[in-house]
Design a protein around this nucleic acid. Structure first.
Length: 296
DNA sequence: CCCCAGGCACCTC
DNA sequence: GAGGTGCATGGG
């Protein structure tokens, strides 16, 4: 077993592992004890995920003890973690470039240290296809089901885990098998998109385009509209300006920024993006989403 | 029974 | 291109 520590206290803005992993940005991590994100969990508990960064599928688990991020894996996971958890982002600079009002300030203050994740592109694409009209806890459960049904087993520290399925593994699944995992009408979307990626249409190729063209390009995949495309760009591909518009953000617009409601998705998202500070609007959006969803 | 969940494909016009 | 409709599943 390899292990290590990353000093996150000295990063600009620090780091909050629990908020980063449990804020609905990623569905590719899980708690060691398997409990749902709706239930309370010690602030120093372990979170696990899998990676193929070094070629072979590997398990990575991390926990935060004050200013240290402690990790254990069957591979050297330090570079992977830094990338996946957004540790290179300068939170202080990002906040300085974001506007200030009562609700934005409260969101940043409450969850300060939360960072934008960078999920692996295929996992991000599939998990956000699954997210359509679905609660956070069930989106998680679906990804765990997909791992166990189709993912490559990994032995680690005396336990058997499952890697997230590869495009080939999911493309070989039948719609019927996916429906049996309670994916509902998303089952054919997942199967057909996995086929497209397995046939060589790499979602990471969206990075060849500027933001709005990249969003349009991603809608080529079945089950991917403007909202899911925005989530993939923001939570996987390193774009920090997308403002995904879901039902929660529609409520935010009604309650706080009604002048940004332009009727349809693209112009409304653009107006809110400009209102939230253009180049890092996705960061502010993610703080607002997490803060407002957990308020009360 | 109802309504809703980090929406999308498909059909009109 | 904008605007309606059907869609699976589980929780409150």
């Amino acid at each position: 077993m390899e292990r290590g520590q990353i000093d996150v206290e000295s990063l600009p803005g620090g780091f909050d592992l629990q908020s980063t992993v449990e804020s609905g940005q990623s569905y590719l991590w899980w708690r060691e004890d398997g409990t749902d994100y709706e239930r309370t969990y010690g602030g120093d508990g372990w979170y696990l995920t899998t990676t193929r960064d070094t070629g072979e599928p590997a398990v990575v688990r991390v926990r935060q003890l004050d200013g240290q991020l402690e990790w254990e894996s069957n591979v050297d996971a330090e570079a992977c973690l830094s990338e996946r958890l957004g540790l290179a982002d300068d939170l202080k600079m990002i906040r300085q470039h974001s506007p200030s009002d009562d609700v934005i300030d409260a969101a940043y203050d409450t969850y300060w240290g939360m960072r934008i994740v960078r999920d692996p592109p295929f996992g991000a694409l599939i998990s956000f296809i699954c997210s359509a009209q679905m609660r956070v806890s069930r989106i998680h459960a679906m990804q765990q089901s997909l791992r166990e049904a189709f993912g490559t087993p990994i032995e680690f520290d005396g336990e058997t885990y499952h890697a997230y399925p590869t495009p080939d593994q999911l493309a070989a699944a039948t719609e019927e098998e996916l429906r049996d995992l309670s994916l509902g009408y998303r089952a054919p979307y997942v199967q057909r998109t996995a086929e497209m990626v397995a046939d060589g249409e790499d979602p990471a190729a969206a990075r060849n385009y500027p933001y709005e063209e990249a969003r349009e390009w991603l809608t080529r995949y079945v089950g991917v509209g403007d909202k899911v495309a925005d989530c993939v760009l923001l939570f996987s591909l390193g774009y920090l300006e997308p403002v995904p518009l879901d039902t929660w953000m529609q409520t935010v617009i009604e309650d706080y920024y009604p002048e940004c409601d332009k009727g349809s998705y693209a112009p409304t998202s653009k107006a809110l993006r400009e209102r939230l500070g253009e180049e890092y609007a996705g960061y502010t959006q993610t703080y607002l989403f997490h803060y407002l969803r957990n308020r009360e």
